[in-house]
Design a protein around this nucleic acid. Structure first.
Length: 663
DNA sequence: ACATGATCAGCT
DNA sequence: GCTGATCATGTC
């Protein structure tokens, strides 16, 4: 009889269990095992010799139920990578394996994908593009990390295409990571035109049966493939990788915030390292974590400061909201009159305008004029937004929604004030004030399907609509031909966000948005309405002065000992009982502080406190922030903490390594 | 995660 | 004393 260590799809004991069988299993095989009274899937990790078994563990080792020949098996290399990731992010390996594996299909459909057309680029590369290629090409057959720092519209895609062609020549597969499905159609079509690869895209809209088919067919054919996909594509069973590109590497959507809290950009570097291939991180606004290590070494840093066309970057204008006082009752509110006049001019000229705002709905919250009562969600510690089209109040984070009452439920006052604004409000104002406006809205609220998204963009590109009002979704990747005017509203709330990355995020967002203006003209304009026009960050964006922004920001990070000068980790404690959550969090904080005082001098434990929104969908969450001077201490510390904490099964305990936002 | 057994409020 | 709800505990 043989004994096997397996990673099972279960959270306890870090998912690692031992089973026996007469049969010979290989590493990576997927088997069915009994745990308690139920049967679950598990992955064979290694054989354990009978004399190495812990005889005192008190468990009677059970028999493996069966192996299904039809099931997928993990290769050693793939499993090594997944194991590394699970360890790094302190997440049970077994759970991770079955989080990423598509639910097995009875009868997997044939994968259909056509070969790319392999056309030559129809234009010459710029000197900067050639230079970037020269830096990266010497490393084409080994691991190295590059930052491709190119302004919006500098033609990063052409560089990708050349690099991917090289990789194809070497008969290697490749991976191109993109932040969201949003911008795939245009990009994929371009790649299909110019590349010989067989191209597969992988994102949330790919059905389970298609996923299953892809997992099985990869590496089975001779033609090299290119995967273009979102963060989870990183876990596909890719072999023989020759190139990994991370597009818009600074983008927050590379970070997963539930289950295993990984950052696909960081894991892409590890994957490239383990595959012995180069990884190219590309962005117009690199994260400090990427820029800091790369820009020092000239070899790893390629910059493209010019657009290949003769068109200049747009002019950025700051408009002081303190100067002109537009009353709440004014028809123009919340716009400044000057901005509206400009939009009218744009429309009169037959051009198009884009308006960006970072909030949804009509009013951000409703307050009673009589008693000051604010309408809050009954499930969350958040105020309700007002949606005028539905005449309802709705919650951002749970599905609670209620009709707007005619009067205040506290005092009966009939005057309910609408505070703050979102896309819906802006749409109404623009429609009523601008003559000839044909407005389309571009936000999560209005766009539920991929078809809707493409149809709104098509209409706008055809000129059937001429003003596009939208949120973050609008800032990324789109190439508008007839837009030379972009208006940015409500950036102040972004800048004053209580997170240490808020300046960095604002810089990135504004730079991306301004990249939507004047792509095909010489008079592109971006207007930013703000109460704080003196803020240094605006001038740096205006001058497209990344290096000064970087110098300022890196100084702040260094002074306050924040990443990239330290490693961070947040622990989240969640539960339905507020008292239990708070007392357990304080208990963990004490344990953590004792550990750090006695054994971990390089670790800081920063308070136990409720999260910014303490109650979400009737669950309370507290957090403890851990900061470490180095990675190794952080991992030792978290492991020790996890092994020594008193388990509290009614509460959730989540570890988030390298958190993206700390709220 | 999930099944099981213990404990407990609300009720006939 | 019954019943459904909530809690505490164990799983190779």
């Amino acid at each position: 009889v043989r004994y096997y260590r397996v990673a099972a799809n279960t959270p306890f004991n870090n998912s690692l269990l031992t089973y026996k069988s007469q049969e010979i299993f290989n590493l990576g095989d997927i088997v069915q095992v009994t745990v308690g009274k139920r049967s679950i899937k598990a992955c064979i990790l290694n054989e354990v010799k009978s004399d190495e078994l812990e005889s005192d563990s008190g468990f009677e080792i059970k028999e493996v139920e069966k192996i299904d020949d039809d099931l997928f098996s993990f290769s050693k290399d793939h499993l090594d990578f997944l194991t590394w990731a699970a360890k790094y992010y302190h997440y049970p390996l077994g759970q991770h394996l079955f989080d990423i594996l598509p639910k097995a299909m009875k009868r997997a459909p044939k994968i259909k994908s056509e070969l790319g057309k392999n056309k030559d680029l129809s234009y010459d590369l710029t000197d900067e593009q050639k230079e970037a290629l020269c830096k990266i090409r010497p490393s084409i057959n080994k691991f190295d990390k590059f930052l491709l720092h190119g302004v919006t519209g500098s033609g990063k895609t052409s560089v990708y295409i050349e690099l991917l062609k090289d990789s194809f020549e070497n008969k290697k597969n490749a991976l191109l990571l993109i932040p969201e499905i949003n911008l795939t159609p245009g990009l994929i079509n371009t790649l299909r035109e110019y590349l010989p690869y067989q191209i597969h895209s992988y994102h949330s809209a790919v059905t389970n049966s298609q996923r299953d088919a892809l997992w099985r067919c990869l590496n089975k054919e001779d033609t090299p493939y290119l995967i273009v996909g979102v963060r989870s594509s990183l876990f596909l069973p890719m072999e023989n990788l020759g190139m990994i590109i991370v597009d818009e590497e600074h983008d927050g959507s590379y970070k997963q915030s539930d289950r295993m809290c990984y950052n696909a950009r960081d894991l892409a570097i590890k994957k490239a390292h383990m595959s012995g291939c180069p990884v190219v991180l590309a962005s117009a606004t690199p994260s400090l974590e990427t820029f800091f290590p790369c820009h020092e070494k000239d070899r790893q840093y390629a910059s493209m400061k010019k657009r290949p066309s003769t068109f200049n970057l747009p002019e950025i204008i700051l408009r002081d909201k303190r100067v002109e006082q537009v009353g709440f009752d004014d028809l123009a509110w919340p716009f400044l009159k000057e901005s509206l006049d400009e939009i009218q001019e744009v429309i009169n000229k037959g051009e198009q305008a884009v308006i960006f705002v970072n909030r949804l709905g009509f009013a951000n919250y409703i307050q009673c004029h009589g008693c000051g009562h604010c309408f809050e969600c009954k499930n969350c510690s958040l105020s309700l937004k007002y949606y005028k089209s539905k005449n309802r109040l709705g919650c951002q984070t749970c599905d609670y929604s209620t009709p707007l009452p005619p009067s205040c439920p506290q005092c009966g006052n009939l005057k309910l004030l609408q505070k703050g604004y979102g896309t819906e409000k802006l749409e109404e104002v623009i429609t009523s004030v601008i003559k000839g406006a044909r407005v389309a809205r571009f936000d999560r609220d209005h766009i539920k399907t991929f078809n809707k998204l493409t149809s709104i963009l098509d209409d706008f590109n055809k000129g059937e609509s001429n003003i596009l009002i939208g949120t973050q979704m609008l800032s990324k990747g789109h190439n508008f031909k007839n837009v030379n005017y972009v208006l940015v509203m409500g950036i102040d709330s972004q800048l004053n966000f209580p997170d240490f990355r808020s300046s960095e995020n604002t810089y990135q967002l504004l730079t991306q948005i301004s990249g939507r203006s004047g792509r095909f003209s010489n008079y592109g304009k971006v207007v930013v309405e703000t109460f704080d026009p003196e803020n240094k960050i605006f001038n740096l964006i205006k001058e497209n002065n990344f290096s000064d922004f970087y110098k300022n920001e890196i100084l702040v990070r260094k002074t306050l000992n924040l990443p990239p000068f330290s490693k961070m980790c947040t622990l989240y404690i969640t539960g339905k009982n507020q008292n239990k959550v708070s007392s357990y969090s304080i208990e963990i904080e004490k344990l953590a502080k004792n550990l750090s005082a006695q054994h971990f001098k390089r670790i800081d434990v920063l308070g136990a406190r409720p999260t910014f929104v303490e109650k979400r969908a009737n669950k309370f969450t507290w957090l403890i922030l851990i900061r470490s001077a180095d990675v190794a201490s952080l991992h030792n510390f978290i492991n020790t903490l996890e092994n020594n904490r008193k388990k509290e099964y009614s509460l959730g305990f989540k570890v988030d390594i390298d958190p993206q936002v700390i709220l």
